[in-house]
Amino acid sequence: MENDPTIPRSGRPTIRDVSRLAGVSFKTVSRVINHQQYVSAEKRERVLAVMAEIGFQPSQAARALAGHRSHQIALICDNPNPWFVYEVQAGVRQRCERDNVRMIAQPYDRSSPALLDDIVALIDQAHPDGLVLAPPACDDRRVIDELQRRGIPFVRLLPGARIEGVPATSIDNEQAAYRMTTHLIGLGHVRIGFVVGDRSYAASSQRLAGHLRALADAGIAVDLDHIQQGSFDFASGKAAADALLDLPAPPTAIFAASDDMAAGALVAAHRRGIQVPAMLSVAGFDDAPLAEIVWPPLTTIRQPVRQLAIEAADLLLVQSDSSERRLDFQLVERESTAPPPSA
């Protein structure tokens, strides 16, 4: 085929070039490109050989024309923790690569008045085959209602309340927080401070609910002064810990709803000369790389963020009948927790 004068010598080879050189129909080439059935092995091999010979690379536009799909999915994600965002993007991209699908990542600014307009513009311009909605977009009714109105497939990653017929991937945030608080109580702690995450994330209320349930089950009265608001970031964790440690009877343990906030609590304690864990236990949530870097390393809840993202993309790409995939969490015990001083 090297001397075949019909092979294009300039410009980018097109799907019609492949069709002509392979002696098959345009539709047959389209089916090969889109990994569809109803193509004989002989024709498939012939098309693939021509594609390799002339260096044909199917464009996204050609794929869309051939299969009425863009072979792109959009990820809508916003989180104050860069590690979380990276893990979500890596997981979705990893699953997409298996099917030669492109991931489009769209930052999500929940405070922007043009938020819905931005997402609609993305849909109209890129025509994604579906969307993965990460927190807090996964609980934004404006976004959900618009996608349902348009009939666009989407999957919710770590959502709050379930929506009938809408697939999702999650962990049991409430049970995970319950498990950590129960662990601290088991060490002998009664005065336990809790730092709540950003109010706009469903996980924040879920983790607080788990903490309160553990206290109730242990017969420990809730002290509202021991509950401080945070924003999932280091600064808010430090501020919340300072407020807790300023109390006349400060807690002997602080459970922060993210590792970043727990790191802030560690710094607040260190600056006061409070030894962790001899004088104060500190626990986090996520098991981000930070959890092993800080001193002492954090006892925390490990949530498999990347695998959750992989599963979300898989639900979207295979269009599974499964409405929810719930993954396990794990309590990881490290050096930041111990019995209280009086125990």
Rank of each mutant, 00 (worst) to 15 (best):
M261S: 12
M261D: 08
M261R: 11
M261W: 12
A262D: 06
A262E: 06
A262Q: 06
A263L: 13
A263Q: 04
A263E: 06
A263G: 07
A263I: 07
G264K: 12
G264Y: 09
G264I: 09
G264N: 10
G264F: 07
A265R: 06
A265V: 04
L266M: 10
V267R: 14
V267M: 11
V267K: 11
A268G: 09
A268W: 03
A268Q: 09
A268E: 11
A269R: 05
A269V: 09
H270Y: 12
H270M: 11
H270A: 15
H270F: 10
R271N: 15
R271I: 02
G273A: 11
G273T: 08
I274R: 08
I274N: 08
I274Y: 08
I274E: 07
I274C: 11
I274H: 04
Q275D: 15
Q275P: 00
V276D: 12
V276K: 12
P277K: 07
P277Y: 05
P277S: 07
P277C: 12
P277T: 08
A278W: 02
M279R: 15
M279P: 00
M279C: 05
M279K: 13
L280S: 08
S281R: 01
S281A: 13
G284L: 04
F285M: 07
F285G: 06
D286E: 09
D286K: 01
D286P: 01
D286G: 10
D287T: 11
D287K: 01
D287C: 05
D287N: 14
A288L: 11
A288N: 12
A288M: 09
P289A: 06
P289Q: 05
P289H: 03
P289K: 04
L290V: 13
L290W: 00
A291D: 00
A291L: 02
A291W: 00
E292R: 14
E292V: 14
I293R: 14
I293C: 05
I293H: 13
V294A: 01
V294T: 02
V294R: 03
V294M: 08
P296G: 02
P296H: 07
P297A: 11
P297H: 00
L298G: 04
L298K: 00
L298F: 02
L298T: 04
T299I: 03
T299L: 02
T299S: 07
T299K: 00
T300L: 01
T300R: 00
R302W: 12
R302M: 04
R302I: 03
R302G: 03
R302V: 02
Q303N: 08
Q303Y: 04
P304V: 10
P304W: 04
V305G: 03
V305Q: 03
R306P: 01
R306S: 14
Q307P: 01
Q307L: 13
Q307V: 06
